[in-house]
């Protein structure tokens, strides 16, 4: 296997991950080949010692999944949004438990060094998360969910309007006269496109918020540790 085949195989097996991640990984291996060649190694030899690109792709996906579970920056899509909200809630509840149980422990072992910040800042952060943060996240989730469902309902209404006015042109339907056709199609199309726009907008909003939660989780993780 030469460099081209190796990278092709790797790229093929990484189709499912985010573009930036894929490109970064590919660049890493390209650099590896470049440096290896400078050291007078053969392409095939380098490829062989790197291992099977299929296995590497599997590893990459696994590692990226891991960093997602601690609020990493893997997929920030709306689909992921619910699991993120839940993860946020779970984190906060375990923090709460930790903060309150630590209080006694720290008294027992005052000498033991921890990397964690003091009790009070962690308590404040946890209380904020517990009483405000989590609920904001849930509220946002519900809002965006509702927006999405209503925008789909609007799309359906528009489509139904077009369908009914077309049917009314050919068949006798009560309350729908054949003259209704142009107006019905025009109104139906506008309503449909409005619904589509609205669903795109709420989807984007969901993605944005999903990203915000990711960032916030990361901030939380950092904030719980001392910097020095």
């Amino acid at each position: 296997m030469n460099k081209k085949e190796f990278l092709h195989e790797l790229k093929k097996n990484l189709k499912s991950i985010k573009k930036e991640d894929r490109e970064e990984i590919i660049r890493d291996y390209e650099e590896h080949f470049a440096v290896g060649k400078k050291q007078k190694r053969k392409e095939s030899e380098i490829a062989e010692s790197l291992g099977n690109p299929k296995d590497i792709a599997k590893n990459v996906k696994e590692e990226l999944k891991d960093s997602l579970s601690v609020g990493g920056m893997a997929k920030d899509t709306f689909l992921n949004f619910w699991s993120k909200t839940r993860e946020f809630a779970a984190n906060v509840f375990s923090d709460t438990k930790e903060v309150f149980s630590k209080k006694n422990k720290e008294k027992e072992k005052p000498k033991e060094k921890t990397n964690k910040r003091g009790f009070v800042p962690r308590l404040l952060l946890t209380l904020f998360n517990l009483f405000i943060g989590v609920w904001i996240a849930f509220a946002f989730y519900l809002t965006i969910g509702t927006l999405l469902i209503s925008s789909w309902a609007i799309v359906l209404t528009g489509v139904a309007m077009i369908a009914i006015s077309i049917t009314g042109f050919f068949v006798q339907i009560p309350y729908v006269s054949p003259e209704f056709l142009p107006l019905g199609i025009f109104a139906g199309l506008s309503i449909t496109s409005m619904g589509v726009l609205m669903s795109i907008a709420s989807w984007q909003l969901g993605k944005l918020f999903s990203k915000a939660i990711s960032k916030y989780l990361k901030f939380n993780k950092k904030a719980r540790l001392k910097n020095e």
């Binding site: 690109p53 990459v60 590692e63």
Partner: peptide
């Protein structure tokens, strides 16, 4: 270990 396994770890 094969040389390729390290890059995914570095990424994580």
């Amino acid at each position: 270990i094969s040389e390729g396994t390290l890059y995914p770890i570095l990424k994580r």
